[in-house]
């Protein structure tokens, strides 16, 4: 993947070739500047590659325009961000309802309310993000990410802005929902402990895949040895 920079082109990612199966729980790690965020943007259909092909939920995104990719994201993709990224002028309930209302769902309120109750925020439906703690905001973000029952969910440093206790709670919530709904979960993280809890760890370095380890297989191999 290349971007214009100064008088030339800057290569951010190259020789990236991997696939992720439905239901997988994958972490993408690497040092700062290794291309993790760029890779997230490409995989999630937020950008198009300068070379190569990207298939997202069975659709080739290379030839899609921005609005087509937006529609695909609304149907199939969920997002969780490090900074929660809630819309400050909307209540918790309204934030969660957005993906559902974009789909024209008449049961948006019911579904969103149920999700917020599941995340322990049943009594905070009408609160604005400014009235919620960091952990509560991230739980709202998680509820929003799962509201459209995505097939794949991208989490960019989901616990990066949280204290240890809240981070643990968020991790538990994330994995529980993932297990319950069977969503493919891709986590970008610097946290080795969080990465170790996933089934597969892709490490990036210098814009290339440094290693691609299946944690489950590694554990089995170690056990066999």
């Amino acid at each position: 993947m290349q971007y214009p920079s100064g008088n030339g082109m800057l290569t951010v990612l190259e020789q990236i070739d991997f696939s992720i199966s439905e239901g997988d729980l994958v972490s993408i790690t690497g040092p700062s500047g290794s291309g993790k965020t760029t890779l997230l943007g490409l995989c999630a259909g937020l950008d198009r590659p300068s070379q190569g092909n990207i298939w997202l939920c069975g659709s080739l995104i290379n030839d899609m325009n921005e609005d087509e990719r937006a529609a695909l994201r609304n149907r199939e993709v969920g997002f969780i961000f490090q900074n929660f990224q809630l819309i400050p002028s909307l209540t918790a309930l309204e934030n969660v309802m957005i993906p559902l209302e974009l789909q024209g769902r008449k049961d948006a309120i019911t579904v969103a309310t149920s999700l917020l109750k599941n995340t322990g925020l049943g009594d905070r439906l009408d609160h604005y993000p400014a009235q919620l703690s960091g952990g509560e905001q991230q739980r709202v973000a998680i509820a929003r990410a799962f509201s459209n029952s995505p097939r794949i969910l991208f989490a960019d440093e989901p616990t990066g802005n949280l204290d240890y206790e809240n981070a643990e709670k968020i991790q538990e919530l994330l994995f529980a929902l993932n297990k319950e709904k069977g969503t493919t979960l891709i986590i970008i993280t610097h946290d080795p402990e969080l990465a170790s809890k996933t089934h597969r760890q892709i490490k990036l370095k210098g814009g290339k895949i440094y290693s691609d380890i299946s944690i489950a297989n590694s554990l089995k191999t170690m056990a066999d040895e």
Binding site: A70, A71, R73, R75, F79, Q85, I87, S89, I98, L102
Partner: peptide, 14 residues
Amino acid sequence: YRDIALLRCLGIKA
């Protein structure tokens, strides 16, 4: 800008 970028992520047309 940030709100719109988020809405674009979630699937709204420009």
